[in-house]
């Protein structure tokens, strides 16, 4: 994005910036909208089922986890909790993967056109969020069907907790997208590392189980409980379940607020790293 007639681009050792540095909210929002539109249209134009895939993938995965986990741990696991967990996990995993590639995948653009680079991971995260919000409709439909058949607890949407949890989860995902997008430009092997870390994160987070399942292990090991709660996905996923399902209490221990604080902290770190790293993007792409 370039400046209006009265402004100028000043390019120094610290990177290019537009002066005077007033907010260009409208132009920024228009570009963000265009980039999000490109992500979404580009993704769904190629396939006949379009948006359906975004919903079908977490649904299939939830079904697979439920079937196999029941074989392993028996009836202790309720499908409704797995559905909520897997849909939210898909949002995070996709945001991380797409966010990481958001700058490297637009190398042409970054090398040739001057515009705020953070819009690339932002557009990528926003497109994933829109996806997630649409898939939430399907999620609640599925939960409703499960409850009607007596296979799950009733659905109850908490009008405050649900948006708050989604907002914090988005903050976490955007922070990681910024961090990894910058890292991926500088170190192209980031993707392998991230692939491994994502699978580890999936298992240590209560995605396909919930905390009740961990109780026997956590009892008598307070340090382990602390570690579990410090993982930002633990309070967020538990919060999402509490906000969507009957009979799920959400009472994290007071000190688990640190786990929730990881989300804004990640965003702050990601923003700082991205801001510094973006100077050299064009050289490394």
């Amino acid at each position: 994005m370039t400046a209006g007639s009265a402004s100028r681009i000043v390019n120094t050792r610290l990177g290019a910036r537009i002066e005077p540095s007033g907010p260009r909210v409208r132009a920024t929002l228009e570009l963000l909208g265009a980039l999000v539109g490109r992500e979404l249209k580009g993704r769904y134009k190629g396939s006949a089922l379009g948006f359906l895939w975004a919903v079908l993938v977490p649904l299939f995965m939830a079904a697979i986890y439920v079937v196999f986990l029941r074989m392993l741990v028996g009836r202790a696991l309720t499908p409704d909790r797995v559905v909520v967990g897997v849909f939210a996990w898909q949002f995070t995993a996709q945001s991380v993967q797409a966010g990481m590639a958001s700058v490297t995948g637009n190398a042409n653009l970054v090398k040739k056109v001057f515009f705020p680079r953070w819009l690339l991971p932002a557009a990528s995260t926003l497109a994933q969020l829109i996806n997630y919000l649409l898939s939430l409709l399907v999620q609640f439909a599925v939960l409703g069907v499960l409850a009607a058949r007596g296979a799950a607890a009733g659905v109850s949407v908490d009008p405050l907790l649900l948006p708050a949890a989604v907002a914090l989860l988005t903050m976490l995902n955007f922070g990681m997208a910024l961090l990894l997008a910058a890292a991926h430009v500088h170190f192209r092997d980031t993707q392998h590392l991230v692939g491994v870390l994502l699978s580890a994160w999936f298992f240590v987070s209560p995605v396909m189980y919930d905390l009740d399942l961990l109780r026997p292990w956590l009892a008598g090991r307070p340090w382990l409980e602390a570690a579990v709660w410090l993982n930002p996905l633990t309070p967020l996923l538990t919060g999402l379940r509490a906000a969507s399902l009957d009979g799920v209490a959400w009472l994290p221990p007071p000190w688990a607020a640190a786990g929730l604080a990881v989300a804004p902290a990640t965003l702050a770190l990601g923003a700082a790293v991205f801001r510094r790293a973006q100077r050299h993007f064009a050289d490394l792409l």
Partner: peptide, 14 residues
């Protein structure tokens, strides 16, 4: 254009 960051000096484009 502002896509490349200089190692030293300054470019101003109005």
């Amino acid at each position: 254009a502002g896509t490349i960051t200089p190692t030293c000096g300054r470019v101003t484009t109005r």
